[in-house]
Design a protein around this nucleic acid. Structure first.
Length: 409
DNA sequence: TCTGGGGTCCTTTTCCTT
DNA sequence: TCTGAAGGAAAAGGACCC
């Protein structure tokens, strides 16, 4: 039986969920962004007493009225026509479409819908791989009807079931593997189905830009273009050794296979997290000396949130790291392994503090983050006889950014 | 004029041990 | 006792994705 893998992508997921809540905004340019201040305005408890659908369109905040840091998380299709899309700065977006309605992101609500649509899929086709809040891979191979019309019949059933239950639309690509299914799901958006077979490679995949391959980002694409490679077909013309010489063993070999539409990764139904982190960008840049108290409070809060996340998810971490972004956007990270796994806020705070002592804090900061890696379930944690890690944790190189009492903030 | 937050994976560098 | 090579683990950084 030929392998059939589907990639399902919800259409403008966050924006669509918001439109279910605010149907009066249908047909309007709506963007969702990191608008902390606006969260209070729109979700004002007094306002929530009435029906959300009765709030007049004129009452919603506009992009042009927003001042502050942040980027667009996502945009409705109407807003996308103005050139607005994910990761665009809010200030720039405001110039492109000042009248666009700006809503704060409500992740709790999106997660609710995410669970709902994934449960619907799992009832129809049990082998489902989670790829974030609005995407999944589905193995159609053994599912009854999964082979009919190359998978179109089953894809149609899933689309309809999701729409009937949630009012949301999605786009589905079905192909011999995940790599091609992912590309196929982009072909017809929104609410489309695309079927790809191995025979479609040259006609439908090779003319596409290399950037369409999931895994080729802006940097790799720029390098490929510099080498005269524009399309996936161009990439397929290069031999294996040439690609390895230019992009390294792993990436080169992967590109070689990808250009030929080959990908044998399975659809993985249960995956364990590798790390958990919390980070925050400050409303204004902060300075280690001038804003010591504020930074210290933020740092402690991040550690507490991280500990709480670990406990909620049922993990303990052994590697604690921090991330710092300076005003010039340069990023540094430091991490260190503990003698034993932990989900304790004070242990995390202490280890993260030691990491921080190894970084120069002369420049103003715009972001601070804390991370826990090498995760295990608490029961799996065993005491380790090796004391070297514990010893290492106390012998941290000092920098001149450390104050006399050993505390930074 | 800007550029979020939460992840994964890979490569390179550094450090430690033998 | 010192030095250097080799290998592995940990750390750092970067690319990429949603």
């Amino acid at each position: 039986m030929p392998r059939r893998v589907a990639h399902l992508d919800m259409d403008a997921f966050y924006a669509s969920v918001e439109l279910l809540r605010y149907p009066q905004l249908r047909g309007r340019a709506v963007v969702i962004g990191g608008a902390r201040r606006l969260a209070d305005e729109v979700t004002d408890p007094a306002r929530l007493e009435g029906s959300l659908s009765r709030i007049a369109v004129s009452e919603f905040p506009r992009l042009k009225d927003y001042t502050g840091r942040g980027v667009i998380t996502t945009a409705s299709y109407e807003a996308r026509r103005f050139g607005i899309g994910s990761a665009l700065g809010l200030m720039k977006a405001a110039r492109l479409c000042p009248q666009a309605i700006l809503l704060p992101a409500d992740f709790a609500e999106y997660r609710k819908y995410s669970h709902a649509f994934k449960n619907i899929i799992a009832e129809i086709a049990p082998i489902v791989e989670d790829r974030g809040i609005d995407e999944v891979y589905i193995d159609f191979t053994e599912v009854p009807g999964g082979q009919r019309e190359g998978g179109r019949v089953l894809a149609r059933l899933i689309q309809k079931s999701i729409f009937d239950a949630t009012g949301l639309t999605c786009s589905i690509g079905v192909a011999p593997n995940k790599l091609l299914a992912k590309m196929a799901s982009e072909f017809r958006k929104p609410n489309g189905i695309s079927i790809l077979t191995e025979g479609d490679l040259q006609a439908k995949i090779w003319p596409l830009a290399c950037r369409k391959v999931n895994g080729i980002g802006p940097k790799t694409d720029a390098e490929l273009q510099r080498l005269g490679i524009q399309t996936i077909g161009d990439l397929a013309q290069r031999d294996l050794q040439w690609l390895i010489d230019h992009f390294g063993q792993k990436t080169g070999a992967w590109m070689y296979e990808a250009a030929r539409g080959r990908d044998d990764r399975p659809v993985v139904t249960n995956s364990q997290p590798v790390s958990v982190s919390r980070e925050t960008t400050f409303a204004q840049n902060l300075h280690a000396q001038r804003n010591k108290a504020e930074l210290g409070a933020i740092f402690t809060r991040l550690c507490q949130q991280l500990a709480s996340d670990l406990q909620t998810k049922g993990y303990v971490g052994k590697t604690i790291g921090i991330k710092l972004r300076y005003a010039d956007f340069k990023c540094v990270t430091r991490e260190q392994s503990l003698a034993c796994h932990t989900a304790d806020a004070s242990v995390i705070r202490h280890a993260a503090g030691l990491c921080l002592k190894r970084i120069s804090l002369a420049q103003p900061l715009r972001l601070l983050g804390v991370r826990a890696g090498a995760l295990r379930r608490p029961g799996e944690c065993v005491a380790e006889p090796d004391a070297s890690a514990a010893a290492k944790a106390t012998s941290v190189p000092m920098t001149d950014s450390m104050s006399a009492d050993g505390q930074l903030f």
